[in-house]
Protein backbone atom coordinates (compact mmCIF):
# COMPACT_ATOMS: atom_id res chain seq x y z
CA UNK A 1 0.00 0.00 0.00
CA UNK A 2 2.87 2.32 0.55
CA UNK A 3 3.30 2.20 -3.22
CA UNK A 4 0.02 4.01 -3.67
CA UNK A 5 1.06 6.72 -1.37
CA UNK A 6 4.43 6.99 -3.00
CA UNK A 7 2.85 7.53 -6.38
CA UNK A 8 0.44 10.09 -5.06
CA UNK A 9 3.29 12.04 -3.56
CA UNK A 10 5.25 11.70 -6.76
CA UNK A 11 2.30 13.00 -8.69
CA UNK A 12 2.00 16.00 -6.44
CA UNK A 13 5.65 16.81 -6.98
CA UNK A 14 5.51 16.21 -10.71
CA UNK A 15 2.63 18.55 -11.41
CA UNK A 16 4.73 21.10 -13.19
CA UNK A 17 6.14 18.66 -15.71
CA UNK A 18 3.76 18.47 -18.63
CA UNK A 19 4.43 16.88 -21.93
CA UNK A 20 2.63 18.26 -24.98
CA UNK A 21 -0.42 16.43 -26.30
CA UNK A 22 -2.25 17.03 -29.56
CA UNK A 23 -4.46 20.01 -30.34
CA UNK A 24 -7.63 20.77 -28.47
CA UNK A 25 -7.20 18.45 -25.56
CA UNK A 26 -3.76 19.81 -24.98
CA UNK A 27 -4.89 23.37 -25.24
CA UNK A 28 -7.38 22.86 -22.47
CA UNK A 29 -5.03 20.79 -20.43
CA UNK A 30 -2.14 23.20 -20.61
CA UNK A 31 -4.40 25.94 -19.39
CA UNK A 32 -5.65 23.84 -16.53
CA UNK A 33 -2.59 21.92 -15.59
CA UNK A 34 -0.64 24.68 -14.01
CA UNK A 35 0.07 23.43 -10.49
CA UNK A 36 -2.59 25.31 -8.64
CA UNK A 37 -2.35 25.71 -4.93
CA UNK A 38 -5.57 23.88 -4.14
CA UNK A 39 -4.54 20.83 -6.12
CA UNK A 40 -1.16 20.63 -4.47
CA UNK A 41 -2.76 21.12 -1.07
CA UNK A 42 -5.24 18.31 -1.52
CA UNK A 43 -2.65 15.95 -2.91
CA UNK A 44 -0.32 16.59 -0.02
CA UNK A 45 -3.11 16.18 2.53
CA UNK A 46 -4.37 13.05 0.81
CA UNK A 47 -0.86 11.68 0.66
CA UNK A 48 -0.32 12.22 4.38
CA UNK A 49 -3.72 10.83 5.32
CA UNK A 50 -3.58 7.81 3.04
CA UNK A 51 0.12 6.94 3.08
CA UNK A 52 0.83 7.78 6.68
CA UNK A 53 -1.01 4.82 8.21
CA UNK A 54 0.43 2.47 5.58
CA UNK A 55 3.96 3.57 6.37
CA UNK A 56 3.22 3.21 10.04
CA UNK A 57 1.88 -0.25 9.37
CA UNK A 58 4.98 -1.15 7.44
CA UNK A 59 7.24 -0.02 10.24
CA UNK A 60 5.07 -1.92 12.66
CA UNK A 61 5.34 -5.09 10.60
CA UNK A 62 9.13 -4.91 10.81
CA UNK A 63 9.10 -5.16 14.58
CA UNK A 64 9.64 -8.79 15.56
CA UNK A 65 8.14 -10.34 18.68
CA UNK A 66 11.66 -10.26 20.10
CA UNK A 67 11.58 -6.47 19.81
CA UNK A 68 14.18 -6.27 17.03
CA UNK A 69 13.65 -5.08 13.49
CA UNK A 70 13.62 -7.54 10.61
CA UNK A 71 11.62 -9.20 7.89
CA UNK A 72 10.84 -12.18 10.07
CA UNK A 73 7.14 -11.46 10.17
CA UNK A 74 6.96 -11.77 6.41
CA UNK A 75 8.77 -15.08 6.62
CA UNK A 76 6.25 -16.35 9.13
CA UNK A 77 3.40 -15.71 6.73
CA UNK A 78 4.68 -18.40 4.43
CA UNK A 79 5.20 -20.85 7.24
CA UNK A 80 1.81 -20.39 8.84
CA UNK A 81 -0.28 -23.28 7.58
CA UNK A 82 -3.57 -22.01 9.00
CA UNK A 83 -3.13 -18.78 7.09
CA UNK A 84 -2.22 -20.69 3.95
CA UNK A 85 -5.29 -22.90 4.20
CA UNK A 86 -7.51 -19.89 4.77
CA UNK A 87 -5.99 -18.13 1.79
CA UNK A 88 -6.66 -21.13 -0.44
CA UNK A 89 -10.24 -21.35 0.76
CA UNK A 90 -10.73 -17.67 -0.01
CA UNK A 91 -9.08 -17.95 -3.41
CA UNK A 92 -11.31 -20.89 -4.27
CA UNK A 93 -14.38 -18.95 -3.26
CA UNK A 94 -13.14 -15.93 -5.21
CA UNK A 95 -12.58 -17.92 -8.37
CA UNK A 96 -15.95 -19.64 -8.34
CA UNK A 97 -17.76 -16.44 -7.40
CA UNK A 98 -16.06 -14.52 -10.20
CA UNK A 99 -17.01 -17.11 -12.81
CA UNK A 100 -20.60 -17.32 -11.63
CA UNK A 101 -20.91 -13.54 -11.54
CA UNK A 102 -19.67 -13.08 -15.09
CA UNK A 103 -21.85 -15.89 -16.40
CA UNK A 104 -24.85 -14.31 -14.72
CA UNK A 105 -24.20 -10.66 -15.40
CA UNK A 106 -22.89 -10.47 -18.95
CA UNK A 107 -25.88 -12.12 -20.67
CA UNK A 108 -28.25 -10.16 -18.45
CA UNK A 109 -26.67 -6.84 -19.32
CA UNK A 110 -26.63 -7.67 -23.03
CA UNK A 111 -30.22 -8.86 -22.98
CA UNK A 112 -31.42 -5.78 -21.12
CA UNK A 113 -29.55 -3.39 -23.37
CA UNK A 114 -30.95 -5.09 -26.46
CA UNK A 115 -34.44 -6.12 -25.51
CA UNK A 116 -35.59 -4.29 -22.42
CA UNK A 117 -33.81 -0.98 -22.00
CA UNK A 118 -36.65 0.17 -19.78
CA UNK A 119 -35.53 -2.28 -17.12
CA UNK A 120 -32.17 -0.51 -16.83
CA UNK A 121 -33.40 1.86 -14.18
CA UNK A 122 -35.07 -0.90 -12.18
CA UNK A 123 -31.97 -3.03 -12.32
CA UNK A 124 -29.78 -0.18 -11.25
CA UNK A 125 -32.07 0.24 -8.29
CA UNK A 126 -31.90 -3.43 -7.39
CA UNK A 127 -28.14 -3.48 -7.67
CA UNK A 128 -27.90 -0.77 -5.03
CA UNK A 129 -29.63 -3.01 -2.48
CA UNK A 130 -26.69 -5.28 -1.68
CA UNK A 131 -24.52 -2.20 -1.16
CA UNK A 132 -26.75 -0.80 1.52
CA UNK A 133 -28.32 -3.85 3.12
CA UNK A 134 -26.05 -4.35 6.09
CA UNK A 135 -24.00 -7.52 5.63
CA UNK A 136 -24.46 -8.16 9.31
CA UNK A 137 -28.20 -8.39 8.73
CA UNK A 138 -27.68 -10.73 5.83
CA UNK A 139 -25.45 -12.84 8.03
CA UNK A 140 -28.03 -12.86 10.79
CA UNK A 141 -30.65 -14.08 8.34
CA UNK A 142 -28.32 -16.77 7.12
CA UNK A 143 -27.67 -17.98 10.62
CA UNK A 144 -31.38 -18.18 11.19
CA UNK A 145 -31.82 -20.17 8.01
CA UNK A 146 -29.07 -22.52 9.02
CA UNK A 147 -30.69 -23.09 12.37
CA UNK A 148 -33.99 -23.98 10.76
CA UNK A 149 -32.71 -26.02 7.84
CA UNK A 150 -33.05 -29.79 7.69
CA UNK A 151 -29.90 -31.71 8.44
CA UNK A 152 -29.22 -32.77 4.82
CA UNK A 153 -29.20 -29.16 3.70
CA UNK A 154 -26.87 -28.17 6.50
CA UNK A 155 -24.39 -30.87 5.62
CA UNK A 156 -24.74 -30.13 1.92
CA UNK A 157 -24.47 -26.36 2.02
CA UNK A 158 -23.57 -24.85 5.31
CA UNK A 159 -20.93 -27.24 6.50
CA UNK A 160 -18.32 -25.98 4.10
CA UNK A 161 -17.18 -22.44 3.54
CA UNK A 162 -17.12 -22.96 -0.21
CA UNK A 163 -20.77 -23.85 -0.55
CA UNK A 164 -21.91 -21.80 2.40
CA UNK A 165 -20.40 -18.50 1.35
CA UNK A 166 -20.17 -18.51 -2.43
CA UNK A 167 -23.87 -17.84 -3.16
CA UNK A 168 -23.86 -14.82 -0.88
CA UNK A 169 -20.61 -13.46 -2.18
CA UNK A 170 -22.15 -13.71 -5.62
CA UNK A 171 -24.98 -11.52 -4.38
CA UNK A 172 -22.56 -9.04 -2.83
CA UNK A 173 -20.47 -8.90 -5.98
CA UNK A 174 -23.41 -8.50 -8.37
CA UNK A 175 -23.90 -4.73 -8.07
CA UNK A 176 -20.27 -3.82 -8.66
CA UNK A 177 -19.96 -6.29 -11.49
CA UNK A 178 -23.19 -5.15 -13.05
CA UNK A 179 -22.00 -1.57 -13.04
CA UNK A 180 -18.57 -2.44 -14.41
CA UNK A 181 -19.89 -4.63 -17.22
CA UNK A 182 -22.75 -2.30 -18.04
CA UNK A 183 -20.30 0.55 -18.50
CA UNK A 184 -18.30 -1.61 -20.87
CA UNK A 185 -21.30 -2.74 -22.89
CA UNK A 186 -22.60 0.80 -23.12
CA UNK A 187 -19.34 1.87 -24.74
CA UNK A 188 -19.66 -0.52 -27.70
CA UNK A 189 -22.17 -0.45 -30.50
CA UNK A 190 -23.91 -3.54 -29.21
CA UNK A 191 -26.78 -3.77 -31.67
CA UNK A 192 -24.60 -3.48 -34.75
CA UNK A 193 -22.22 -6.10 -33.39
CA UNK A 194 -25.03 -8.50 -32.63
CA UNK A 195 -26.77 -7.94 -35.96
CA UNK A 196 -23.54 -8.39 -37.85
CA UNK A 197 -22.73 -11.56 -35.97
CA UNK A 198 -26.22 -12.94 -36.50
CA UNK A 199 -26.21 -12.12 -40.19
CA UNK A 200 -23.02 -14.12 -40.49
CA UNK A 201 -24.86 -17.08 -39.04
CA UNK A 202 -23.61 -17.39 -35.49
CA UNK A 203 -25.78 -18.55 -32.63
CA UNK A 204 -26.62 -16.41 -29.62
CA UNK A 205 -24.08 -18.29 -27.59
CA UNK A 206 -21.19 -17.83 -29.97
CA UNK A 207 -22.18 -14.19 -30.51
CA UNK A 208 -21.87 -13.70 -26.80
CA UNK A 209 -18.61 -15.54 -26.33
CA UNK A 210 -16.83 -14.72 -29.58
CA UNK A 211 -18.07 -11.26 -30.44
CA UNK A 212 -19.28 -9.45 -27.35
CA UNK A 213 -16.93 -10.88 -24.75
CA UNK A 214 -13.70 -9.88 -26.54
CA UNK A 215 -15.07 -6.37 -26.97
CA UNK A 216 -15.88 -5.87 -23.32
CA UNK A 217 -12.87 -7.80 -22.07
CA UNK A 218 -11.59 -4.97 -19.92
CA UNK A 219 -14.92 -4.36 -18.25
CA UNK A 220 -15.31 -8.08 -17.54
CA UNK A 221 -11.80 -8.21 -16.08
CA UNK A 222 -12.69 -5.22 -13.93
CA UNK A 223 -15.74 -7.06 -12.65
CA UNK A 224 -13.64 -10.14 -11.95
CA UNK A 225 -10.98 -8.21 -10.03
CA UNK A 226 -13.54 -6.36 -7.96
CA UNK A 227 -15.22 -9.64 -7.16
CA UNK A 228 -11.91 -11.11 -6.07
CA UNK A 229 -11.20 -8.05 -3.95
CA UNK A 230 -14.60 -8.36 -2.35
CA UNK A 231 -14.26 -12.06 -1.60
CA UNK A 232 -10.80 -11.64 -0.15
CA UNK A 233 -11.97 -8.76 2.02
CA UNK A 234 -15.38 -9.84 3.27
CA UNK A 235 -15.21 -10.68 6.92
CA UNK A 236 -18.57 -10.00 8.53
CA UNK A 237 -20.64 -12.84 7.08
CA UNK A 238 -17.81 -15.32 7.34
CA UNK A 239 -17.13 -14.34 10.92
CA UNK A 240 -20.72 -14.61 12.10
CA UNK A 241 -21.20 -17.92 10.32
CA UNK A 242 -17.89 -19.10 11.82
CA UNK A 243 -16.14 -19.91 8.55
CA UNK A 244 -12.38 -19.50 8.54
CA UNK A 245 -11.60 -17.46 5.45
CA UNK A 246 -8.51 -15.41 4.74
CA UNK A 247 -9.60 -12.12 6.35
CA UNK A 248 -11.05 -13.95 9.36
CA UNK A 249 -7.77 -15.77 9.78
CA UNK A 250 -5.87 -12.48 9.54
CA UNK A 251 -7.75 -11.29 12.58
CA UNK A 252 -7.22 -14.54 14.42
CA UNK A 253 -3.58 -14.96 13.50
CA UNK A 254 -2.69 -12.01 15.67
CA UNK A 255 -3.65 -13.93 18.77
CA UNK A 256 -1.15 -16.67 18.04
CA UNK A 257 1.78 -14.88 16.47
CA UNK A 258 1.53 -11.30 17.66
CA UNK A 259 0.37 -8.30 15.71
CA UNK A 260 3.46 -8.05 13.50
CA UNK A 261 2.46 -10.94 11.26
CA UNK A 262 -1.09 -9.68 11.16
CA UNK A 263 -0.04 -6.30 9.86
CA UNK A 264 2.44 -7.83 7.43
CA UNK A 265 -0.32 -9.94 5.85
CA UNK A 266 -2.58 -6.91 5.68
CA UNK A 267 0.01 -4.92 3.79
CA UNK A 268 0.69 -7.75 1.36
CA UNK A 269 -3.00 -8.32 0.66
CA UNK A 270 -3.59 -4.62 0.06
CA UNK A 271 -0.64 -4.50 -2.32
CA UNK A 272 -1.92 -7.58 -4.13
CA UNK A 273 -5.37 -6.12 -4.79
CA UNK A 274 -3.93 -2.73 -5.63
CA UNK A 275 -1.62 -4.42 -8.11
CA UNK A 276 -4.58 -6.18 -9.75
CA UNK A 277 -6.55 -2.97 -10.21
CA UNK A 278 -3.52 -0.93 -11.23
CA UNK A 279 -2.55 -3.46 -13.89
CA UNK A 280 -6.12 -3.41 -15.11
CA UNK A 281 -6.04 0.35 -15.52
CA UNK A 282 -3.20 -0.05 -18.02
CA UNK A 283 -5.04 -2.79 -19.84
CA UNK A 284 -8.04 -0.50 -20.10
CA UNK A 285 -5.90 2.44 -21.15
CA UNK A 286 -4.59 0.54 -24.16
CA UNK A 287 -8.04 0.62 -25.75
CA UNK A 288 -9.23 3.81 -27.37
CA UNK A 289 -11.69 5.34 -24.91
CA UNK A 290 -9.75 7.24 -22.33
CA UNK A 291 -12.73 7.22 -19.99
CA UNK A 292 -12.63 3.44 -19.84
CA UNK A 293 -9.64 3.64 -17.52
CA UNK A 294 -12.25 4.05 -14.85
CA UNK A 295 -13.24 0.58 -13.73
CA UNK A 296 -15.92 1.11 -11.25
Amino acid sequence: MSATGGNLGLAARGLGAIEPAPDRKKRRASRRRRPRLWRVTIFVLAAIYFIGPQLAAFKFSLVLSSGKYGLGNYGQIVQNSALRDALFTSLEISAITAVVVVVLVLPTVVWIRLRAPKLTLLLEGITILPIVIPPVVLAAGLEQLEGHSPQWLVSLVFNHALTGLTPFYVILALPFSYRAIDTGVRAIDLRTLVDASRSLGSSSFSTLTRVILPNVQTAVLGAVFLTVALCLGEVVIANILLYVTFPVEIIQVGQETGPGVQVAVSILSLLFVFGLLFALSFLAGRKRGATSTRLI
Binding site: T4, L230, V273, L277, F278, T293, I296
Partner: peptide, 15 residues
Protein backbone atom coordinates in the same frame (compact mmCIF):
# COMPACT_ATOMS: atom_id res chain seq x y z
CA UNK B 1 -8.64 5.13 -9.24
CA UNK B 2 -6.96 1.82 -8.38
CA UNK B 3 -6.27 2.85 -4.82
CA UNK B 4 -9.87 4.00 -4.43
CA UNK B 5 -11.09 0.62 -5.63
CA UNK B 6 -8.89 -1.19 -3.11
CA UNK B 7 -9.71 1.01 -0.16
CA UNK B 8 -13.42 1.32 -0.84
CA UNK B 9 -14.21 -2.31 -1.57
CA UNK B 10 -11.53 -4.44 -0.04
CA UNK B 11 -9.62 -2.81 2.73
CA UNK B 12 -11.86 -3.15 5.79
CA UNK B 13 -9.63 -5.40 7.88
CA UNK B 14 -6.16 -4.42 6.64
CA UNK B 15 -6.80 -0.74 7.13
Amino acid sequence: SSASGVLAYFAGVPL
